[in-house]
């Protein structure tokens, strides 16, 4: 409906002008603690993140593998709440007016917030989009349409099981971009098969003008480079939260290496997309 371009639209336009795919980074809000997480978030754009997915921690992340499960639990244990997650975005926005932030997670913490108030607050603090894993197009009137009304993009996952019959339903109210899940499975496990992914991405792109990014199971610059062929961006998540996990001290607390471990990895991965 809006003629005004969103932050997400502008970013993909800029990437197109640069002639490269974008690096989309996922970290969980509040992992491993609020201060370190804020430090990581603030450092992501300079490290090479073009779009930031910020996980809203949930006790039962059914579509996620062990790395993101653990990340979610660390954040919750450190006292993360939905309000703190939104505050984190507000603080980030004060110094970065350009990098799109997409909140990603599960429906229940939004449902009990409750949903309408959550969408108001998310739009107010400068969130650009939402990925809510367990709200399919069949339930668009609950969250997707109210989000769009507030100018928030509702980004849908398309998967290897999204066949030609199903794809139109998935694309119908999607905005911002489409997230192609490169494997039938959970995050951070199997590695995607590049050729299969490229043909699937081509199929989706022939059905929508929206940018398509690819994620799930991506850990190396080589994968980033290969998967970005034909796509508009590549998502890295589990590898980043695993870097957090590996940097923690024996007591499970952040160390002075935690933020740099994540940011260095982002820098390393982003070289694959830059000349």
């Amino acid at each position: 409906m809006t003629i005004q371009q969103t932050r997400i639209d502008r970013r993909f336009q800029a990437l197109k002008n640069e002639g490269r795919g974008g690096l989309v980074t996922f970290v969980t809000a509040g992992d491993p603690d609020p201060e370190t997480a804020a430090q990581i978030l603030a450092g992501l754009p300079a490290a090479g993140a073009d779009i930031i997915e910020l996980g809203m921690p949930f006790s039962d992340p059914m579509a996620d593998g062990p790395a993101i499960q653990a990340s979610s639990l660390r954040a919750l244990k450190a006292g993360q709440t939905m309000r703190r997650t939104l505050e984190m975005v507000r603080a980030f926005r004060q110094s970065d007016p350009d990098t799109p932030i997409v909140l990603m997670g599960y429906y229940n913490p939004i449902f009990v917030y409750p949903a309408e108030a959550f969408l108001d607050d998310a739009a107010a603090v400068g969130v650009d989009g939402l990925i809510v894993v367990d709200v399919p197009p069949e339930a668009d009137n609950e969250l997707c349409l109210p989000a769009m009304k507030r100018g928030l993009s509702f980004i849908r996952l398309a998967t290897p099981t999204t066949d030609a019959k199903r794809l139109p339903a998935v694309l119908q109210n999607t905005s911002g971009f489409v997230y192609y899940v490169s494997i039938a499975g959970i995050t951070g496990t199997a590695a995607p098969v590049v050729n299969d992914v490229q043909s699937q991405v081509a199929r989706i792109k022939s059905s929508t003008p929206l940018p398509v990014v690819v994620g799930f199971g991506v850990k190396s610059p080589d994968q980033v480079r290969a998967l970005s062929e034909g796509a508009d961006g590549v998502v890295v998540g589990s590898a980043l939260v695993r870097a957090i996990e590996d940097s923690l001290g024996a007591n499970g607390q952040a160390t002075d290496k935690t933020a740099s471990a994540v940011l260095d990895l982002v820098k390393h991965l982003s070289t694959a997309l830059r000349p």
Binding site: M62, A63, P136, E138, L157, T159, T161, D163, V170
Partner: peptide, 12 residues
């Protein structure tokens, strides 16, 4: 009730 599942499972 409803069907609040990840997209991978919806077709199934």
């Amino acid at each position: 009730g409803g069907r609040f599942v990840a997209e991978t499972l919806m077709p199934l």
